[in-house]
Design a protein around this nucleic acid. Structure first.
Lengths: 218, 218, 218, 218
DNA sequence: AATGAATGAGGCTTCATTCAT
DNA sequence: TATGAATGAAGCCTCATTCAT
């Protein structure tokens, strides 16, 4: 993640990195299904068709593998947030785009995200701090958009921190909980989520422009 | 046969039940802080100031203790839902009352609820099934109220299942995630939650009566 | 067992002894079914409808209970051997009578005997020695009868020790192994056992009297 | 999929199998001396000079180790029985050969056999059934030979099941009980056992040929 | 790059026994 | 007599990790 490589870690070949990536992706479903602690190194070896020694050659440690799963998600999420930040649009529109980007990541990495949401407390030391930092950075971005909407009179005078958490929970947990009862395209929920949330905090009597009308409710 | 009652488990004294309850409550914070799998029996013994044998005298097994924590929460939650069901009120009002009851339970048992939300996959066999049953029953109650609101024209024509999940996630996860950054009274969030959610799904042009206006937004 | 009572053990009431005897008899089936080590104190408590403290009041320790089961059997066996010793009869006849007595004990205490035969190595220290002493004493009695038969020319010149062990194994293990496939009266096997064994070691050309003819074969 | 073979147990190297065999053989004496339940994993580790993890790498579980000891014996016993079945000979001769083979196995694996005879009830589930099956198959072989001797008039009209049990007990338990008082070659007892048993059930007035005369009694 | 044997700490649970009540 | 809570050692087993090959 661009931390430099001046440290003691050996330089690795592209093949090594490719294989490592494959291992990370193949391991996430195991952690998602059984939980981080309940998944043994042996399970990971089987899933990756590798012996213990070879597996450690790629992952370093079990916790490092967990951290790598977190990074996989956060990298994508931040890229999506950056993309949105460069687009024009009102706070409502920004929020809707952010939701689409986030749901897109979750839809592409549902196991990784599940792991991230449920097992992040298993990270320790520096790895825990690093993850918390990135997470907070993302949350602050949401908060900022909401605050902008309040300032512009587009949203009511809600608590921005609280509203941001509602928005995050709606996208993270709700989407995953819906997936359980059958596959679900991100596209199908992005609209309803945006409607519910934005109507939920919208100002009924906005200073200048009229109320947004629900998508597809016509 | 005298003393026996042929049932598998021996009859227990009130003192035993009292101590058991205390152990359940004292153990929830440990599971909440470190996770179920990462919390050892030794930790539980220390926290309860009991030897291993004595601890097992009360809990039966680690998983049974986990299940007891789940039950503690679900019992309260269902009682709250029953209480609301006996009160009169429109779907909006019912939803608001349900939210207050739920947040009240979470505020009183934040650690228990955290454990329930994060560690329920650790339940196995019959215990898992029993918990899932109670959970689904509660979720269906929320869904029913939402459906009633749609039928009466009070709510828009949203997907009731999706909306129910949003409502649940908002109360369960969001409240807990807010607590992390400092203690928070249930009273303070119940209003905003109700506003955001009910406005979020409300029908902007209801057949009969006017729109609800946000609490305290005056 | 008539060892005196000058020692530290408290004097006990007749009721205590009666209850203790009942416990010994009720516990033997458990040890027989599951094995000494696999049977827990809790199992014994249930079977005797007693709490742990009360059980210990009667048995002293688990191993003492095991020893008591051994004694129950050995007492009866030695009494039977004494009775036979006072009867007249040739070595063949003595052997047949000893077999009847032994099988009678086994038939009346099959569980106790099973325990004795399979769990005696669990006895330790003085208890082990005491039991081994009594056991050897009994075996020597059998050996003596066989030796007498050899001396009188009634039996062939077999190894008396070996023959005694064959006789013992036949009665102890064979009878119990037969019982497994359905209840069996001692009376039914005593004859065949005597026939097989005595024919097996009989002198085909005895000095004086003719060969014994098989019971009921006629 | 490359390395996998989809079967539950991984393929093992010859070295692994060799070491496993050594562990099985080195563990039998411990079980024989102290009993299966009284022998701890720690004891087995010491005896095999292995850590717990390494021991489990080879044995799977304590009970699997016990089952392996049983198999070691039963494999040999069945091979011996097969060998005899292919030899010509009257029932008496077959019985004598079977006895020699059985005693030979016992002499070579006295501890294994002791364990088998005393600890088979510790086997559970499928392992117990499998063992019982093989055991019964062997017992039926003995019974068949005895029945043949009765049909041919060589033996008296004894109960074949009972006689088979006597034969088995004589070889199994008696030989082992003799060993306790000092080492004993199988060769020394095979003859006397055959004499005692075969005379014991022989027909005194056989239809065609004369009575067998005791070995080395002359 | 890969294997799998070995480590040894720690996992959860049960044990026989004691003792205050 | 009887109870059952408490003890703490020991039970069997699995863990993540290392290392010689």
């Amino acid at each position: 993640m661009g931390r430099g490589d001046a440290s003691g870690e050996p330089r690795r070949s592209p093949r090594w990195h490719a294989r490592r990536g494959a291992i990370i992706d193949a391991s996430a479903p195991l952690f998602a299904r059984s939980g981080y602690h309940a998944t043994g190194i042996t399970d990971l070896c089987e899933a990756n068709d590798l012996g213990k020694g070879a597996l450690y050659h790629y992952i370093g440690s079990k916790e490092e593998l967990l951290a790598a799963i977190h990074d996989r998600v956060m990298d994508e999420v931040m890229v999506g947030a950056d993309r949105v930040a460069q687009e024009p649009g009102s706070p409502s529109q920004q929020l809707e785009m952010l939701g689409r980007e986030l749901l897109d990541v979750i839809a592409r990495y549902p196991d990784h995200v599940w792991v991230l949401l449920h097992e992040y407390p298993a990270l320790t030391g520096e790895r825990a701090e690093q993850f918390r930092g990135r997470r907070e950075e993302y949350e602050r971005r949401i908060e900022v958009v909401i605050r902008a909407g309040i300032d512009s009179g587009e949203f009511r005078d809600v608590d921005p921190r609280l509203a941001a958490r509602v928005w995050l929970g709606m996208h993270n947990y709700t989407y995953l909980s819906l997936r359980v009862s059958g596959p679900l395209s991100a596209r199908d929920v992005a609209g309803p989520f945006a409607d519910i949330f934005i109507y939920g905090i919208a100002n009924p009597t906005p200073p200048e422009r009229g109320r947004r009308s629900p998508q597809g409710a016509e």
